[in-house]
Design a protein around this nucleic acid. Structure first.
Lengths: 235, 235
DNA sequence: GGACACATCACTGTATACAATCCTGCATTC
DNA sequence: GAATGCAGGATTGTATACAGTGATGTGTCC
């Protein structure tokens, strides 16, 4: 059985070394150790991981497909900075897909699935207790992915995975300091509903959980980031 | 204004030459000129397009991400052969996403959007009259993509694009000879509903259209393809 | 005659070298 | 002093060469 924080995503497998680089970059982005907008120079990344640019390029392309990085032709790869509009779209899409997925998961979950989810939550708590925000955030995403996997719809699970990856960037950009990270209980209740095989309740819990998350973001129309003024005038 | 059959998909842009190769391969697959399961050797493709393997690899990777081709490590790239289960999942996902998208499209469509859709249909008819099955099929897919673009949800539009790409493979594998290609009228009615700004009707038409499509496929559990016996015994 | 082991071959994986493009800084000019 | 043009450097795009892996076919042994 896999450890809950295993990160073999459903994404397209790259070959050998490329996958290692992709995972490492993806992890760092998910844990907010690389900020949106950061340039990922090929030589730079290549040296860090002791591989050639060929491998790095494959990784960056894979990440670009997940929209975690943006590749500008002849200019290089940058960690993506989702716009307000994109941020809204991502959460709308999640609110469309995930509640239904949670329902399916509740209807299909076996004992080992429940176990997996519970271990997930344990890990989340541990990360929160250790004040490891980055890890907690990543695990929180993994929790959602785990549910979509249990729902046994790999196609939709893949979409959700991509949405959660982008959510991580969105949270990095638009999270309101004021709002607390109240996911602990939300996730716990969700697992309970799934363990009870109560699809209806799982669906509703997931929906409200996502609405909570959404409303904890600052997705109004006015400029948010300090550099947006400069950005707005440049092009 | 763009020509309706323009094919600048929302997918991640590859660099320069790679995009040309990706488009050409994608087109050939969509038009059923390359069968599922066909091997796409790097040298072979490289020579056909007069580029180096580097470029071909980038293209194949991009197509792999759309799940149009499957890359097996150290073994090469093959045009994907979606399983029955995957086929079902793809259509379930479409039935989940597209009706709602059609509703949004109806609510947002401007005159130029209606024009675009009408020109799409004209092209489809032309292809059908010319008995160009492959082109008709591709245009039919493009029609769905156009609607999702009008809905102005680029994130979901991207998902739908990927689903339609795979649908093309699924149709190649599981289409029943008996059932007629009845899309002409379905698409026509849909455009009418969108032109009337009747979201409700558009949603319902899209739903039934997809159900029709789904039921025109042979997605039962028994083996379908003639070579499946051989395949089943080999591994 | 069949099966296994091994060698050969074809192909993919990775690294590196070269070409093209873009950005930066400086000099020149008005 | 500001703006423009140009040159240098840095970075990405592409091609090619080498290394590693899997498949195929042959030969030998039982």
């Amino acid at each position: 059985m896999n450890h809950p924080s295993d990160q073999t995503t459903g994404a397209q497998k790259n070959s050998a070394a490329a996958e290692r680089v992709t995972s490492a970059l993806s992890l760092a982005i998910h844990e907010h150790r690389i900020a949106p907008g950061t340039k990922l120079g090929e030589d730079e990344v290549a040296e860090i991981f002791s591989v050639s640019r060929t491998v790095v390029r494959a990784s960056l392309q894979a990440l670009a497909h997940l929209q975690l990085v943006e590749i500008q032709r002849n200019r290089g790869a940058y960690v993506a900075k989702p716009s307000l509009r994109e941020a809204r779209e991502v959460f709308e899409a999640r609110e469309l897909l995930e509640p239904r997925t949670a329902r399916s998961a509740a209807e299909r979950a076996g004992p080992e699935d429940i176990d997996l989810l519970k271990r997930h939550i344990t890990e989340e708590h541990a990360a929160l207790d250790a004040s490891d925000q980055g890890r907690a955030l990543r695990l929180s995403g993994q929790f959602h992915i785990a549910i979509s996997r249990i729902a046994d719809q790999t196609t939709i699970a893949g979409f959700i995975e991509a949405l959660i990856a982008r959510s991580s960037l969105i949270i990095a950009l638009y999270w309101r300091r004021e709002s607390a990270l109240c996911e602990k209980f939300a996730h716990h209740d969700l697992v309970d509903a799934i363990a009870d095989r109560d699809g209806e309740r799982a669906e509703e819990l997931m929906r409200s959980h996502l609405v909570d998350l959404h409303s904890a973001l600052d997705l109004d129309d006015r400029p948010v980031a300090p550099q947006s003024l400069k950005d707005a005038l440049k092009p």
